[in-house]
């Protein structure tokens, strides 16, 4: 029976952070590792992520990025509304699309939009944005508890795990139901720190989520991004921990905490 699992959010081609995260999770003795989608975007060499996933038997939920690349769509469906954000999104999308093998594209196309598990009697639902919409943003400051309760009701789940926003948070709901946004390992959380992070869910016998910060060689990632001619704005985020793009999707509270 599974008691302890690792939940990895958006990878965004950060294969260096993925290596460290897998090592960390193994050391903590997890029963299984799951990834909640968005394998590409932002970082360099998208194809380096896939062997790590298969070697470590990591089951993956389809993210909006994977859906877009897998289905040869024109853009990433990240839901940006600002022209500047879209400009940068397009650069990384075109780069990722051009550097992902046909085999990996087909593999991403076939990924499931959700994974369901049972842990100690709890119905666990893993999804990308939200259970109802792959690219829905669930931010801490704009997601009321009663809304999450409705998601649990509508989707027959006691525990829902998502990613997509890039910033982790969690909440316990009335009736022993739980929600966690597990964050991402693709880039830092807009808090001036260079680490990334993932979550461990342990059910023993009650569910507990723990956010685990992960250090990795971010200087090397930044160097490789520069070598691949990815935007300097992205490199700056890796080196400083502050977001320089995608700011317009942030709600007031999350935006104020950042630098830009």
């Amino acid at each position: 029976m599974m008691k302890k699992i690792a939940l990895i959010g958006g990878v965004y081609s950060n294969y260096l952070a993925l290596q460290e995260t897998i090592k960390d999770a193994r050391r903590r003795g997890v029963d299984a590792i799951y990834c909640l989608g968005d394998l590409g975007a932002f970082g360099p060499h998208p194809d380096r992520v896939f062997p790590l996933l298969s070697e470590n038997e990591i089951a993956v939920v389809q993210g909006n990025y994977d859906h877009s690349i897998g289905n040869d769509l024109q853009d990433c469906q990240c839901g940006y509304t600002d022209p500047r954000d879209n400009y940068f999104a397009k650069i990384s999308y075109d780069y990722t699309y051009a550097n992902t093998s046909g085999e990996n594209k087909r593999w991403m196309k076939a990924l499931p939009p959700e994974i369901r598990l049972e842990m100690g009697g709890y119905r666990v639902l893993l999804c990308h944005g939200s259970p109802r919409k792959m690219n829905e943003f669930l931010w801490e400051s704009t997601t009321p508890a009663h809304f999450l309760e409705k998601l649990c009701r509508d989707h027959q789940a006691d525990i829902i795990c998502a990613t997509h926003t890039g910033i982790h948070w969690q909440v316990e709901l009335p009736g022993d139901q739980h929600f966690a946004n597990v964050g991402v390992i693709g880039r830092p959380e807009n808090d001036g720190q260079t680490h990334v992070g993932y979550m461990i869910l342990e059910v023993d016998p009650r569910p507990v989520f723990r956010y685990i910060p992960v250090e990795y060689d971010y200087r090397r990632l930044a160097r490789e991004m520069q070598e691949e001619k990815l935007p300097e704005e992205f490199v700056e985020t890796v080196l400083t921990g502050w977001w320089t793009t995608c700011l317009e999707i942030l709600p007031a509270k999350e935006r104020i905490r950042g630098k830009f």
Binding site: T81, D82, P83, R84, D85, N86, Y87, F88, L247, E248, I249, P251
Partner: peptide, 11 residues
């Protein structure tokens, strides 16, 4: 009517 906004349009 949603809250998404624009920073500046220099892209």
């Amino acid at each position: 009517c949603s809250n998404f906004s624009s920073g500046k349009r220099d892209a």
